[in-house]
Each structure stands twice: as C-alpha cells, then as structure tokens.
Amino acid sequence: MEYFAGLDISMEETHVCVLDREGAVVHEAKTMSTAEAIVASLAKAPTCQRVVFETGRMAPMLYHGLFERGVPVVCIESRQAYQALKSLATHKTDRNDARGLAHLARTGFFKPTHVKSLPAHAVRSLIIARKKLVGQRVMLENQIRGLAVVFGVRLPRALSPAFIKQALQSSEGIDGLSAAMRGLIGARAAVLSAVSAIDADLKRMAKASNACRRLMTIPGVGKLTALAFTAAVDDPERFRRSRDIGAYLGLVPRRYQSGEVDYTGSISKCGDRRTRTLLYEAANVMLTRYKAPLKLRDWALAIAARSTMRKARVALARRLAIIMHAMLRHGTVFRPA
C-alpha cells in the first residue's frame, strides 16, 4: 500500500495529514514547524511515497531540512494549490488544507516548483536589502529638498558634498529647520554607509564567482545583474531549453484565448521582479552607451526602428537572459562577434 502526506505550514505550527492510495486518512497531527518535529510526526505513520507542501516563507528551510533527512518532499506553487484546495473543502482550515494537499500528493495533480538553494536565497536577500536602502536614501534626499525649497533654496540634484553643504547653510538660524536637516542628513549618511558595505560584499562575491565573472563579459552586465541572475537561475540544468528562461522571468507576452477571443498582451511580469528590472537596465545600457560594433545591439535597434525603443529593451532583455543562461550551462564567455 502506498501512502501520501500533506503539510500545511505556518510560522509556529504545521498540520500533517497522511492518506493511503484510496484516500482514507491514516494519520493526522499538529506539530512544530521544524524539520525535526515534522520528521518525528511522519515517523508515526507508514512510510510516505510523497510529501507535499506549498511555497511560502518557511518553504526553503523546511524543504532542504526534510530533503537532507530522506523525506520525499515536493514543493508546489501556492497559487495552483489554492485553486485545487478551494474545490476540495467548503471551509478553509489548516486541517482541511493539509488533507487537501495530501489528496494532491495522492492524485499527482500538481506541478512541482524548484526550491532555490540557501546560498541563492542569501544573495537575493542582500540584493533586496540594497534596493530597500537605496529607496530610503532617495526618500531622505527628496525630503531634504522639500524642506529647503519652502525657504527658497533649490538644492542640486547631483549627489556631491555641495548638496550637504547647501542644505546645512539653508537651515542656519532656523531652530526647527536646522534640527530637521541635521537629523535627515545624519540618517542619509548612515544609509549611504550601509549601501557601501553591501556593495563591497557584492563586489567580493562577484569576484569570487566564476559564473559571475563570465556573465560580466557581456556589455552592460555588472556585478549586481550577474549575481541576481545566477541567484534566480540557481541550477541552470533545471531548464530544458535556454529560451524557457524568458517565460520564467516574465519577459514573454501574455496570451489569452477563449473561444473566438484570442489576443496577445504585454509581458507577463512573472518571476523575480528585481532580476527582470536589472536585465532591462542592462539592455538599456547596451543600447544607449555601448558604441562598439555588436550584432546583438543592431538586432535590438532594428526592432526599435519598426516598433518602439521600450519594446526593443524588453526584447533585448529577454535575449540577454537566454544568452546568460546558455553561458552558465556551457561554461562559456561572451563573444561579441
């Protein structure tokens, strides 16, 4: 007899449900959301052929922890699981969700999703933290400009020492404004220091990675884009064809077809948003700043000539993703010719 399990995971507790091949409940329990506790709970039931749970914040740690302990675990997309679970139970409870996931494991009506390695998640966390800090820096600078313009002072847009000097001069002799300016400038300095520290870590990691050094041979691709792409792909062999990476990163047109209705819209924007943005910026750099002869650039400019520059950037970003995946897969460097 084959047995299948479903795990409904939350931050504190996990509901476990084990079914047999006929769909009868064999074991139900509630345990802590740790790999050790889940393995101990599954040990009280017959050995499972497949254990299924949804993607979420706890998914990477639990997936790798259970996999290392020999559990045949499969992670599925939460949006797909939601549609299936909605049809299996009238009331949405953690117990019913675990039972529904066990039924999915039993029937095989799911599509497994790749769980990135923990080092890849660490790189993505560093990139996301940098993006948040840069956003905070921009917000602080705009606040400083907004306070200064009330008193008739227009600060320069360039990030130079003149920016800070002029901001402090504009607030001299005004008690409330002076304190506000010094506080905002101090916060901006702290944020800039944190961004510099993250940039140093990113530079060190890119230099130590052979894959990143190969990707950086492409014009317009820097250390940030190379690290973000390698972290998003994680394992190049999980894509059967290099052109599949375009759909994975949301750089292909969205299509809707139903009866007589059939149209193709803008790009789907699925997947890693930050990696997609960095590829778009790399494409823009190649189109606007790279002056040496390059067939890839000429191909994108031909698209811009018959359409728009924005569509050319998107098309070039998708082509760059395909080329970068092929470089990772085959261990090659970029050859402009």
Results as ranks from 00 to 15, higher is better:
residue 157 R to H: 04
residue 306 R to P: 02
residue 29 A to I: 00
residue 218 I to K: 02
residue 124 R to E: 13
residue 184 L to T: 05
residue 272 D to C: 11
residue 246 G to K: 00
residue 310 R to E: 07
residue 51 V to P: 01
residue 128 I to H: 09
residue 42 L to E: 06
residue 20 D to V: 07
residue 47 T to P: 00
residue 28 E to A: 05
residue 285 V to P: 01
residue 250 G to F: 06
residue 41 S to V: 11
residue 259 G to S: 05
residue 127 I to Y: 00
residue 103 H to D: 13
residue 309 M to P: 00
residue 23 G to W: 02
residue 329 R to A: 13
residue 298 D to A: 14
residue 142 N to A: 03
residue 136 Q to I: 14
residue 264 T to C: 14
residue 75 C to W: 01
residue 108 G to Q: 06
residue 291 K to T: 12
residue 283 A to I: 12
residue 111 K to C: 12
residue 273 R to N: 14
residue 230 T to A: 14
residue 61 M to Y: 12
residue 189 A to P: 01
residue 124 R to C: 08
residue 212 C to V: 12
residue 146 G to I: 09
residue 256 Y to T: 01
residue 23 G to M: 13
residue 22 E to F: 04
residue 93 T to P: 03
residue 239 F to N: 05
residue 267 I to A: 12
residue 126 L to Y: 03
residue 44 K to V: 10
residue 11 M to R: 15
residue 161 P to Q: 06
residue 72 P to K: 08
residue 321 A to F: 08
residue 123 V to Q: 07
residue 143 Q to P: 00
residue 97 D to I: 05
residue 23 G to I: 03
residue 47 T to H: 09
residue 166 Q to I: 14
residue 123 V to L: 13
residue 332 T to A: 03
residue 110 F to G: 12
residue 94 D to C: 05
residue 131 K to V: 09
residue 205 M to L: 15
residue 75 C to G: 03
residue 131 K to D: 15
residue 38 I to A: 07
residue 4 F to K: 04
residue 36 E to Y: 06
residue 65 G to A: 11
residue 276 R to E: 04
residue 15 H to G: 03
residue 149 V to L: 04
residue 305 A to T: 14
residue 56 G to Q: 07
residue 335 R to I: 15
residue 6 G to W: 02
residue 130 R to H: 09
residue 282 A to D: 02
residue 225 T to N: 03
residue 332 T to P: 01
residue 143 Q to T: 15
residue 29 A to P: 05
residue 77 E to H: 09
residue 17 C to Q: 08
residue 154 R to F: 12
residue 4 F to G: 02
residue 273 R to K: 14
residue 97 D to A: 09
residue 1 M to P: 03
residue 335 R to T: 14
residue 314 V to I: 15
residue 212 C to F: 10
residue 17 C to I: 05
residue 156 P to H: 00
residue 266 S to M: 11
residue 132 K to Y: 08
residue 262 D to E: 11
residue 85 L to V: 07
residue 1 M to R: 04
residue 57 R to Y: 12
residue 252 V to C: 09
residue 107 T to F: 06
residue 81 A to M: 10
residue 314 V to D: 01
residue 285 V to I: 15
residue 318 R to T: 10
residue 292 A to G: 08
residue 302 A to F: 07
residue 259 G to M: 03
residue 64 H to S: 09
residue 191 V to N: 04
residue 171 S to F: 05
residue 48 C to K: 05
residue 3 Y to T: 14
